[in-house]
Design a protein around this nucleic acid. Structure first.
Lengths: 298, 298
DNA sequence: ATTTATTTTAACCTATATGCAATTTTTTAT
DNA sequence: ATAAAAAATTGCATATAGGTTAAAATAAAT
């Protein structure tokens, strides 16, 4: 089992930060060294300060740490994967693992897996288990990911009236995660986007731009639900094709991107900005064409 | 300043877990009590174990903790907000705050804010600062959020050739965050979705269903970039309207949702599933209509 | 090859995280 | 309202996180 200190060290060294620089004013150099070698534990506040010093987010450290220890305790993501791919054999294994544990939460996990299996037509739930579930929901006042997830799978099994009481409770809660959604993935897209637009500005770089668009396409090939980024890729690809001489093909893609933005009711300012930007490259007539949706009867 | 232990306590008590149950086999009851009251620090491993016990993610604890302490050190999100809203006065304040700090990273933060200000036309960058920036990028081998973010803002300022060398480096890295994207927000949507579909099944619940759809709409009103969920809402709203008797209106929305899925090239199986599901409610002719895109010339 | 900076290791010391037993507070039951 | 039970807190003891100093081992620089 890899220790968290080792993961910390990976980050530190990859950024060429010395023990001295990282520890300065937080902990001593020898101590940090011991921590990184897994010889000692560390207090949470010190860890936070150290991470802040080397500009790594706690979530990043945690993620890499979890990845390094595939057999971690946090089985939730694994459930999800097995369930979504309909792998009931795998789910049964998880079930077995949890059945060997004791306590209130193990029981809940077991019920959750059973519900998944039931949905897949490979198990069934007892009335007593449903009572345990109801009882649990009755007594919590603050929903975290765990309860959301559990509730999501419980809906078909719970008593209708009870479910709605619960759901009303849930609705009263704030959604605190709004700012949480700017993940590294969209940051990466942002960078690609800027670079590609930058390249398109000088006519000798069009080929590189095109290869980057292709790269982006492969990144998002399997991200079926990421409509937004997929649409932005149409836009980039369209402009690239246009500038490379394939005007008609390019315009169609540009229009497609605009149409999707229009249909999803993206704020009007967004399309206006697009229009202004593209005026640099396209003729007025072409602009009119790709921003005209009057032939779409929706 | 609120301590992390207090935030932990919020989670524990809201789930009706006693100190006894939470600490069992990890730390002693009195110690956990002291930690929650901010009287002592805690080791990182113990904190992880405790969180796992009460089914709270580290990121959830961190988020609530940050929210409670608005004046936290992690200024990154604040930058972003000020920059995106074009608030250069606010940015200048952050600049001032960082200028009073010393060290390599403070310097980088200063440069980053200056670049933002420059982009907004409210400052300029010196050659020396650009050298510092290049130098920093030259020496890191592992990119985290911090570097991605910094790089994103540096693109217009860096030497073209250098920028591409860097970018090529970046491309070689894996993108490790793919699984990271299932945030609580989409989980919440999933729950709403299931409940609404469930309600639509019994004709006496249509009104509640409609009110939930409205609620969903307001949630996502400002999420302009979340094309996927916005599209799913069209679908839910369409079906609801249809079942409430406003057939034509409903069909148009359903068709709109399908069209967007079609345009964004969502995997074909998705639309097939949709088709099968909707067959429960619509006539064959109506199905044909909402899945026919031959009149859209894109 | 020699110097210099950085990291690792060691020994001993101090501060504090954590445990244990007893006490107080809060909740539950009658 | 009172007793009983459960949960949370306090005081003191101890284990361990973390500091200091110095020396050995590596790595980088000249």
């Amino acid at each position: 089992m890899i220790k968290i200190g080792q993961t910390f060290k990976e980050f530190r060294t990859s950024k060429n930060i010395t023990l001295q620089e990282a520890s300065q004013g937080i902990v001593s150099v020898p101590f940090l060294s011991r921590f990184e070698r897994g010889l000692t534990d560390i207090s949470f506040t010190h860890l936070l300060e150290l991470l802040n010093r080397i500009n790594v987010q706690l979530s990043e450290l945690e993620f890499l740490y979890q990845t390094r220890n595939t057999a971690g305790n946090d089985l939730l993501p694994n459930f999800q994967r097995a369930y979504q791919s309909g792998d009931s054999a795998q789910l049964r294994e998880y079930l077995h693992a949890w059945q060997s544990r004791s306590g209130r939460f193990a029981k809940l996990q077991i019920i959750q897996i059973k519900m998944m299996l039931t949905t897949l037509g490979a198990a069934s739930i007892t009335d007593n288990e449903l009572l345990v579930l109801e009882d649990y929901f009755k007594n919590i006042s603050n929903w975290t990911f765990f309860e959301l997830y559990l509730f999501g799978h419980s809906i078909p099994f719970l008593d209708k009236a009870f479910m709605f009481t619960l759901f009303e409770e849930l609705q009263k809660k704030e959604i605190i995660y709004e700012n949480f959604r700017h993940d590294n993935f969209s940051l990466l897209f942002y960078i690609y986007n800027n670079i590609i637009l930058f390249l398109l500005d000088s006519s000798d770089s069009l080929e590189i731009a095109e290869s980057l668009v292709t790269k982006l396409e492969t990144y998002f090939k399997n991200q079926d639900k990421d409509y937004y980024h997929r649409t932005r890729i149409f836009n980039l690809k369209g402009l690239t094709l246009y500038l490379r001489g394939k005007k008609k093909e390019g315009l169609i893609l540009l229009k497609k991107a605009n149409l999707i933005a229009h249909l999803t009711e993206h704020e009007p300012q967004f399309l206006l900005n697009e229009k202004n930007y593209l005026a640099k490259y396209l003729t007025a007539k072409e602009i009119d064409y790709i921003f005209d949706f009057s032939d779409i009867h929706i």
